[in-house]
Design a binder for these strands. Sequence first.
DNA 1: AAAATCGACGAAAACGTTTCCGAAACAGAT
DNA 2: ATCTGTTTCGGAAACGTTTTCGTCGATTTT
Lengths: 359, 359
Amino acid sequence: MSKRVGLKDIAEALNVSITTVSRGLNNKFDISKETRKAILEKADELNYRPNAYAVSLRKNEYFTIGVIVPSVDHYFFSTVLKGIMNKAHLSNYLVLIGESTHDLNKEKEVIEQFVSHCVTGVIISPSNKSSYSNNLDILVKKRIPYIVVDRPVKESDAPCVKYDDPNGAFLAVEHLIEQGYRKIAYLKSYDYCVISNARFQGYKDALAKHNIPFNPNFVKTCHLIDQENQEEEGFFATKQLMLAVDKPDAIFAVNDDLAAGAYRLAEKLNLNIPRDLGVVGYSNSQISRHLKPQLTTVEQPGIEMGELAFDFLQQSIIGNKSKLTKTFDARLIVRDSSIRGAETKYKKQKDNKRYANSI
Amino acid sequence: MSKRVGLKDIAEALNVSITTVSRGLNNKFDISKETRKAILEKADELNYRPNAYAVSLRKNEYFTIGVIVPSVDHYFFSTVLKGIMNKAHLSNYLVLIGESTHDLNKEKEVIEQFVSHCVTGVIISPSNKSSYSNNLDILVKKRIPYIVVDRPVKESDAPCVKYDDPNGAFLAVEHLIEQGYRKIAYLKSYDYCVISNARFQGYKDALAKHNIPFNPNFVKTCHLIDQENQEEEGFFATKQLMLAVDKPDAIFAVNDDLAAGAYRLAEKLNLNIPRDLGVVGYSNSQISRHLKPQLTTVEQPGIEMGELAFDFLQQSIIGNKSKLTKTFDARLIVRDSSIRGAETKYKKQKDNKRYANSI
DNA sequence: AAAATCGACGAAAACGTTTCCGAAACAGAT
DNA sequence: ATCTGTTTCGGAAACGTTTTCGTCGATTTT
C-alpha cells in the first residue's frame, strides 16, 4: 500500500525544502534553472500529482461546477449535459453530476452535497415539482451562482437558459390548424409541471387565434414515471380520446414519447397518420426521425443550451451582474406526421433532404 | 460578499472552542447535551455546511468516484451512467463525470484530473482506441481501483463488467440464418474498435457453424464520428452493398443507428424489410422499437451494467481481491425486421406484447 | 571597503477540519 | 485531607498545499 506522494517526498529526495519544490513545480521566478529541472524530473519519476483538495483549500478557489438534471438518460438532458461538458473541459472545470429524479428531497440532498464540495457554480434543470420548492434558496443564501436550464422557476429572476415553450406549442398547434385539423387534443403532464403548462398556454393561444373553441375533453393528463412508461401513457390517453364519441383529429403531445404512444394506437385502430390523425410531438428526440411517418416536432437544441448555460455561469462567477437570460426561439420541425394531403406536395425541409439526391 | 461560515464562526458566537463545535456537530460522546444543542442551533442559524475539502484532507478519505464515458449523450452510456448514479447516491458518493470523446489525450487529461481530485475509484468505458493506450496504467500506478465497463481492454485482467459481445453477434447472425437468410453483411466500425471486432468474431462463428462461406465483400467499415452521422454511414455502406452485383440479403449492423441507415436505403430502393432484406442491429436503443418494422436487436442492459460496475468498484475499494468480472449473457430481442414470412406467424416476444390485449 | 542590490532558498503561517492529549472541575471513595 | 474517576472542554498537531517574509551569501554600486 503505497502512500500518496506529496511535495514532502520530492523535497526529501532532493534535500531541499517543500517551499522550493512548490516553487519549482509552479514555475515561480525565484528559483534556479538547475533545481527546477531536478524537481521536475523527480516529480515525474515519483509520479507526483498535486492534491487538488489541499490546493483548493489553500488557494480558496475551487474550479468545480455542479450539474443537476432530473435524469441523465433522458435524451434532452443528456444533450444539455454534453453541451455543458464541452465548455467545462475547455475551461478546465471539474464537473460534478447529480440526478434529482423529480424528487425534491433528492434534489435538495444533491444541492447540499454540492455546497459542501464548494462548487463555484451550479447549473440546474429543476425538477418538475420545483415550483413548490425552495431548494434554489440554498444556493442563494450561500451566494453560489447558478443557472437554470429549460425549466424557468416561477417568480424567480435567476439567470436562465430556456426555450420559448409557449411559442413552440403555438407553432405546433397553428401548423396543425393550417393543415386543416380542427379538433386538436393535447397530451399533457402533471399540473405542477412548468413546461407542460407553458406548452398548454401556447396550445390554447393558437386555438384562440383561429377561433377554435377550447374543448377540455381534448386534454388528457399523462403520468410520466420513466422513459419506458411514457409511450404506454400516450397510448392509453390517445385510446381514451379516440374511443370517445367526439374524437379529435389531431394530437399535440407534450413530448415525443407520448406521441409515439399515439402512433401505436393509430396502428391498432388502423388509423392513418397523418390522414386520419395528425400528430405533433415535442423535443426532436432521436425517435422522432425514426417513427413512421416521421414525426413533426419542436426542436430543442440541448447542446447549444448547455453550452450557453456554462458561458452564463462563467459570466456569473466572474461577477457579471447583467441579466443573464436567454430564451431560445422556438422552431417547428415539420415532418410527415402532420402534413395533410399528398406528402409529395410538401417541400421537405433540409432535415429530411439529407438523403434526397444520394441515389 | 459574505465569507463562508466555518467552525470558527460558530465557536466565536458561542464562546467555545473549535474543537467543541466539531464534537457537537459530529455527535461525539464527550460533550454535554446543552452545549451540543446550542451548537446545532447556531450552526443551523448560520447555515453552516462543512467544507468537504478540509474534511477529506484531514480524514484522508474522499468519498468520490470518477466516471469516464466516450459520450454522455450516447444512449447506452447514458444508461450506464444512470445505473452508476443510482447506486452512488445510495452510498453517498460524489460522482465526477468526464467525456473522452474517443480521444486518447482527452481521456488521459480526464483521468489525471480525477487523480488530482483524489477519487477513491474510477469507472471507465474506455475509448474505442484504448487498445493502443496505457491510460489505465495511470490508475494502476496510483493504486486507484477501477472498473472497466463494456469495452474489455486487451490483455488486461482489470475488473470488468462487460457484455458477451461475440455471442450477441452470434445469436443475431444465427437467427438470420435460421430465418433463411444466407448472404449476410456486417456493418462494422474501425479496425481498432474492440467491440466491433468482438462482434465480428461472433458473426464469423455463426457463418462457420452453418457452413456459410465468409465473404469479405459483405463487410463494410463505417466511420462513426458522432450520433448524427452514423445513420448516414449506415445508409452509404448499405448502398454500396446493394448496388454491387452480388447483393446481400441481410444486414447485421454493429449498432442500431447504422441499421437505421440501412432502413433508409431500403426505403429508397423500395426494398421490403424483412422480405427483401433482413436487418439486425445492436444495443436495443430507443429508436430500435420505433423503426418500422421494429428492429431486431441485441439487448444491452446499461442500467444493470452500471449498477453492477458500482458494486464491483465498492468491493474493490474495500479491498476485495477476488476476480470482479461479470459478463452479461447475450440476449437477442427478435422483432419484425428479421422474421421472414408472415409476421402474424411469429409469436411476438413479451417486449412487443405490451399493447396486445389493450384494445 | 562599506553599502546596496540581487538571486536562491527556507521557516512558518494559513486554508478548515479532525483528533490526540491533557486539564479543569467536580464527584465519590478512602 | 488525598486519591481516583468522570465529565466536559481546550490546545495543538496534522492533512498537503501556497505564500509571505526573512535570511544568507554573492555580486554590484558608491
